[in-house]
Nucleic acid binder design. Structure first.
Length: 108
DNA sequence: AACGTGACACAGC
DNA sequence: AGCTGTGCCACGT
């Protein structure tokens, strides 16, 4: 039994990210009501279970800042490109178009 | 209970 | 994506 922690909520939202879409740490934090805890979201991914597509979560500018934390730094870009998302120099192209806002999509 | 940490975000230059 | 500095909140020890 896991106690309801901020991390658990982050994983839940991250799992809801549709295929071919990406979101930012701040968006998830804001959806959880902890807008100022954007850093926490990233830290939460440190223990991200395999069900959580952490590769779909990037910073607000579309940079794959957390790619370095994957088994292989290149794996993150590979997964994104596999979902029809263009990634050049660790930066997601048309980030605004691929951006998935849980507050809007899930309807807070 | 306190200090340090952390894959960010925002304001100022 | 301009770059640098500061603030932020929740978790781990």
């Amino acid at each position: 039994m896991d106690k309801p922690s901020f991390f658990q909520d982050v994983y839940e939202v991250a799992r809801l990210i549709p295929n071919g879409r990406v979101t930012s740490y701040g968006a998830i934090a804001a959806y959880l009501g902890a807008k100022g805890s954007a850093r926490m979201v990233g830290w939460a991914m440190n223990g991200c279970p395999p069900d959580v597509p952490a590769h779909r979560v990037v910073n607000r500018v579309g940079l794959l800042t957390g790619k370095h934390h994957f088994s292989n730094p290149n794996r993150m870009q590979e997964l994104l490109e596999s979902e029809n998302i263009s990634v050049i120099e660790d930066e997601i192209q048309n980030f605004n178009k691929h951006f998935w806002d849980p507050i809007v999509e899930l309807g807070f």
